[in-house]
């Protein structure tokens, strides 16, 4: 069988433009090499800066290592770090705080983002400007955001408490300096800074929804609520799943705001798993234990992610 009649279109194109390929196998191989060449920079980056550190972290989790002592100071300790983690009350308290932080923050951000997207999807005055304004916090650095909120939530001189005093609340919360209000304050700031990003993603999904479905629903007599539950929500399910997964990952790893605003305090009120890991590694030089905590955290996030993935199956318009 001659190659001219059996080769795939792409390979044929390669062969015909190459002019020196000879048979199909050589042409395919040439195309493959070019393909590899294109992805090599990215692949090298991925291997060097993602996969290798990940594998190293897994290996370090089974050791006792303070970094300063160099590679010769690495001691294999088997599962000791994991055993310690299982019995470490401070870690599990941090896990609880992380679940609270992400458990409130993720749904609040997504619901806020969806509401905002539906509002911005309407034909309202200044819509473009509003889209930019709401997206702005997403592109501002967490340090700048933290600084602004630090001033706003200052318990003595901040405008938030000044406002609360003005309406008769004599003892307003101490916000970030309070053991009770520290974590809710951080959730509020995290929601505020991520809501615009969620709104933009939802907005793009809303604008891609098929109009005929709404027309059909309207003809069937569905009111606005019914149209939302039977058309909009199922159609948005892939977007919702994407946001739920990415937001859960990012919120459970939330670190920048906590480091800048509270350093895990007051007391341990805002010490989440990420900050706990940072403390163990970078303050106490217990990198083996920090890596073990990282692995446990990784498995937890993986389980949550797979839950979201399974949950959305069969519930969407297209799944």
């Amino acid at each position: 069988m001659s190659s001219s009649t059996t080769q795939a279109p792409v390979a044929r194109a390669v062969a015909s433009t190459g002019g020196q390929g000879g048979d199909t196998r050589e042409s395919l191989s040439a195309a493959g090499r070019v393909g590899w060449l294109f992805i090599t920079p990215n692949l090298v980056g991925f291997l060097a800066f993602t996969l290798l550190p990940l594998l190293a972290a897994i290996a370090i989790a089974f050791t006792s290592w303070n970094v300063v002592s160099g590679y010769s100071g690495i001691t294999f300790v088997g599962l000791a770090n994991f055993a310690e983690a299982l019995g470490d009350g401070a870690l599990w308290a941090a896990v609880g705080r992380t679940l609270l932080y992400a458990g409130i923050g993720v749904p609040a951000t997504m619901m806020g983002g969806l509401g905002l997207a539906m509002l911005l999807n309407r034909d309202i005055a200044g819509r473009t400007l509003l889209r930019v304004v709401f997206f702005l916090p997403h592109v501002v650095s967490s340090v700048a955001i933290g600084l602004v909120w630090l001033l706003l939530l200052n318990p003595d001189s901040g405008p938030v408490n000044a406002g609360l005093r003005a309406i008769g609340i004599d003892a307003p919360p101490a916000w970030l300096v309070s053991e009770t209000w520290g974590l809710p304050s951080l959730v509020l700031i995290a929601v505020w800074s991520a809501i615009g990003y969620n709104a933009v993603i939802y907005l793009s999904a809303l604008q891609a929804l098929p109009v005929d479905l709404y027309e059909a629903a309207a003809i069937d007599g569905a009111n606005a609520f019914r149209r939302f539950t039977t058309v909009t929500w199922p159609a948005l399910m892939p977007t919702t799943t994407f946001l739920a997964i990415t937001m859960t990952i990012s919120q459970s790893q939330g670190f920048g705001l906590i480091t800048f605003l509270t350093q895990g305090g007051p007391g341990e009120a805002t010490t989440t798993v990420s900050y706990f890991m940072y403390q163990q590694g970078f303050q106490f030089y217990r990198f083996g234990y920090a890596a073990a905590v990282g692995m446990i955290s990784f498995v937890g996030v993986l389980l949550l992610t797979s839950f979201f993935w399974r949950f959305q199956k069969g519930r969407g318009l297209y799944t």
Binding site: A174, S178, E179, G265, P266, G267, E268, Q283, F284
Partner: peptide, 16 residues
């Protein structure tokens, strides 16, 4: 470092 962190954390809690 651990002892220092423990003290500072609890010191803040007392004074708060």
């Amino acid at each position: 470092n651990q002892v220092d962190t423990i003290y500072k954390k609890l010191h803040d809690q007392v004074l708060l």
